[in-house]
Amino acid sequence: MISEAHRGDWGMDIDHWDWVPGVGVISLMEYATVGGQEKVIEYLLQWVNRNKHKADGVKVINALAPFAIFPELYRQTGDPWFLQKAMSTADWMLNTAPVTREGALEHTVTENVDFPEQVWADTVFMAVLFLARMGGLTGESRLADAALRQTLLHLQLLQDPATGLLYHGWNSREGNHMSAVRWARANAWITLAVPQIVMEVQGVADIPEELHSRYSSLAAALRSCQAGNGLWHTVLNRPDYVQETSGSAGIACGFFKGVKNGLLDSSFLDSARLAVSGILPLIAENGQVQGVSGGTPVMPSEEAYNTIEVYPSLYGQGLVMQLLAQELELEDRQL
């Protein structure tokens, strides 16, 4: 993940300030905190110093992902710069970032394209998780409440009441889910983020019961469409479509965290472990994770999701790293 040989590779170059390297550094932080790897913290500090000048280039929701490591870096170092920068970014989210008519954060990206009044599942992991971590760090109820409000609003707008699964996006202007596809990685972003958001804001804000019930419904629906080898198909309700590794890792890691944080019962550990067994053979000898689909906007049709190019990426590497870190931590707790 940190090799300079990846420079210029969109999927694997970590020295940018956007969602792809953002998921990478979030995952490295997860590995560091679970495994007590001080050298990884040192690397992350170096990464921020190398790339922080890029953070102010464009303020968009998708590029907020790297800020999710700032609360822990502040705890580790006491450097007030991390707190000040994170607070100014959180204030931008609350006061300036565009929102839809429902009040949900509009999904904005660094690429030269607009998605006016569109709500994407990705936002919960890329931006709302950071907001929750800031609420937990500072104890400010306004931050915690905003994180919970955005999380619940995204679930309300994206969850299919018939199946419990999530659609990739919602178009507020048109009042529909566009191509109405239940995409695996979209479901993974929220499945993984919600237990962390709840953990961060507990004691600062009251967790709505609706959040618990919606998350339980989502997890049960995901478990019902898990393939026999432990993976999920890129379109969850299409077992004839390709299986996708990053979405599978994110869902399974969310199950581990959901059980750990009391949102799910322990039976979900079996599904998570099954996913681990299915993903391990997809890690090549050089460490690259296979079967990861490329960056995916809301596609025009269900069929289009099955044609996305597959290649190694930092989010694929990172989500698998988070999954394995959770499995190892669970094993350590049971010893």
Rank of each mutant, 00 (worst) to 15 (best):
A184Y: 08
R182V: 02
M126W: 03
F130R: 06
V128F: 06
S88M: 09
T138S: 14
L335T: 12
H154V: 06
S27M: 03
N229V: 11
M93W: 02
L236Q: 07
E42C: 10
H212L: 12
G230R: 07
F82S: 05
L148E: 08
Y167C: 01
A55I: 05
E303T: 02
S213F: 09
I207H: 09
E210A: 15
A86G: 15
A252S: 13
A186S: 10
G247N: 06
L328K: 11
N51S: 12
G250V: 09
W47D: 08
L45V: 06
S216G: 15
L105W: 09
F82V: 07
A65I: 00
R273V: 10
I283P: 00
G175A: 04
L269W: 13
A147E: 04
Y74L: 05
D145C: 02
D265T: 15
L165G: 07
V113H: 08
T163K: 01
D206C: 11
T96F: 03
Y167K: 04
Q322N: 15
S172R: 14
R142N: 04
L328G: 10
V235M: 04
M178R: 14
L148Y: 10
N237A: 08
S293Q: 10
T234C: 08
E106I: 00
E327I: 08
L158N: 03
L45F: 02
G103V: 06
N112C: 12
T33D: 14
L231W: 01
E106T: 13
L155H: 04
Y315D: 02
S224Y: 05
Q46K: 15
D91A: 14
A193G: 11
H233Q: 00
R173T: 13
A104C: 05
P208K: 13
Q202F: 05
G291K: 12
L314R: 09
S271Y: 10
S271H: 02
W183V: 06
Q46Y: 10
E42N: 07
H177V: 08
R223V: 13
D265I: 08
A325S: 10
Q196Y: 05
A144L: 01
D18A: 13
L143W: 03
R173P: 06
I14H: 11
V298H: 10
V99P: 00
S217T: 13
P195R: 12
L335A: 13
V259L: 04
Q84D: 15
I26A: 11
V235L: 07
L236D: 04
H177T: 03
Q84P: 02
W232P: 04
S301W: 00
R333N: 15
A127K: 01
P312H: 09
R333V: 00
E72M: 10
E4I: 01
M299N: 00
H16V: 05
L45H: 08
V128C: 02
G228S: 15
A5C: 09
P281T: 04
V289Q: 12
V128K: 01
E200K: 10
L211R: 11
L129A: 14
P21W: 02
V320K: 07
S293V: 09
S213K: 11
V58A: 13
G278R: 06
L236M: 07
P297R: 12
Q290K: 10
S172Q: 14
I251K: 01
H107F: 07
V181I: 07
G136R: 00
V128Y: 03
Q118T: 12
G36L: 00
V109L: 12
E327Y: 14
E72G: 06
E174G: 12
I197L: 12
L263M: 12
T234E: 05
Q46D: 15
